[in-house]
């Protein structure tokens, strides 16, 4: 066999494979075993936020300790990410969309105590956010408030509340508005059912929904994280979209937690703890505001970043829905209100 293929596959092929294999494994091995490394398992829209936070924190950490540090990120729907942590992804910190998902981790594993929420300031939520509407420029469907989303002929994009934290906030915000407006459980349910009937695509994560709406041009209105809506401005230009602030929204508290079981095994507790505490520092709070989240301490942020956020009135999960455990059971667990009301006819 004198052809090139013959040479590749002649008698020496085994040796060549072995040499190639060991070369590749050395490459991959060297890349996996870096000095100290943290893994932050987070929800969908925080990609841009943590990219900036991580750069700031690693620089500060190296300056302070002389230790090299890399922070790895994993993003996905909040529920999906909690599942990955429960199934054993080697995360040092969980930064998820809602306390309920971290509660689920505490319930199903021994990675962190059930009292995790009290270990950091502000309910372990270094920033808040809320839910707004993103519509196409000129608001052709005239969408002003939640009531408009249930109108026939309006196409609504929102992710699946079973897997997406953002979608759960969306759902509860809509529910709270309807309760306020109708004061009658039957009408609330009819409204939610009509709204869900207007949803043509149910992505598994908030990011998927934003892509569907902004990039794929589907739907008249996106029920969105506030920060995600502003990100669409940054990514796709302000000429194509408008933000509509509903009359009532929900105060979303995305929570962060140290996963004790993992950091103690990996020996990364000090760095991981410092990382979470860093989120409350003036520097991080400014980065948080810059990425269009609502910082806990707005005095540290650039006032311009705060000024563009719409003024809204809020309900909260703890006050209006009896906390996440109850809200989850009432609405999102199997057989909850979402399962009862989501019966697409098409």
């Amino acid at each position: 066999m004198s052809s090139p293929l013959g040479a590749l596959f002649g008698r020496k092929f085994a040796t060549r494979w072995l040499i190639g294999l060991s070369a590749v494994s050395i490459l991959a091995g060297s890349q996996i075993s870096l000095a100290q490394s943290l893994l932050n398992v987070s929800y969908d829209p925080t990609r841009e936020l943590y990219r900036e936070i991580n750069t700031a924190f690693t620089a500060q950490w190296t300056q302070k300790t002389g230790q090299a540090l890399t922070i790895k990120q994993s993003h996905g729907g909040s529920g999906a990410q909690a599942r990955a942590i429960i199934d054993g992804i080697d995360a040092d910190v969980a930064t998820l969309a809602l306390a309920g998902d971290i509660d689920a981790i505490a319930e199903r594993t021994t990675l962190l105590p059930k009292t995790w929420k009290t270990r950091l300031p502000e309910n372990s939520a270094p920033y808040t956010s809320t839910i707004v509407f993103l519509v196409r420029k000129g608001n052709p469907k005239g969408i002003k408030d939640w009531g408009d989303l249930a109108r026939p002929g309006v196409s609504v994009i929102t992710p699946n509340p079973k897997t997406s934290g953002g979608a759960r906030w969306n759902y509860l915000a809509a529910w709270a508005w309807a309760q306020n407006a109708y004061k009658d459980d039957k009408q609330v349910r009819a409204f939610i059912a009509a709204l869900l009937g207007n949803v043509p695509v149910l992505d598994t994560g908030a990011r998927g929904s934003t892509t569907t709406f902004a990039q794929r041009g589907l739907g008249d209105v996106l029920i969105s994280w506030e920060n995600e809506a502003f990100l669409v401005f940054d990514e796709f230009g302000k000429d194509n979209f408008e933000i509509v602030a509903p009359s009532l929204s929900i105060l979303a508290e995305p929570s962060v937690a140290l996963l004790d079981g993992n950091v103690d095994r990996k020996g990364t507790r000090a760095a991981a703890q410092a990382y979470l505490e860093f989120l409350y520092t003036p520097k991080a709070q400014a980065i948080i505001a810059k990425n269009h989240y609502r910082p806990r301490y707005p005095e540290h942020a650039n006032p311009a970043d705060i000024a563009i956020l719409p003024k809204l009135s809020f309900v909260t999960v703890d006050r209006d829905f009896g906390g996440w455990t109850k809200a989850h059971k009432d609405h999102f667990a199997d057989g909850g209100s979402f399962d009862q009301l989501y019966k697409p006819s098409r």
Partner: peptide, 11 residues
């Protein structure tokens, strides 16, 4: 691979 990866960027 998507189910087992955990999607840790760079890892």
């Amino acid at each position: 691979v998507a189910v087992v990866s955990g999607k840790i960027r760079g890892m």
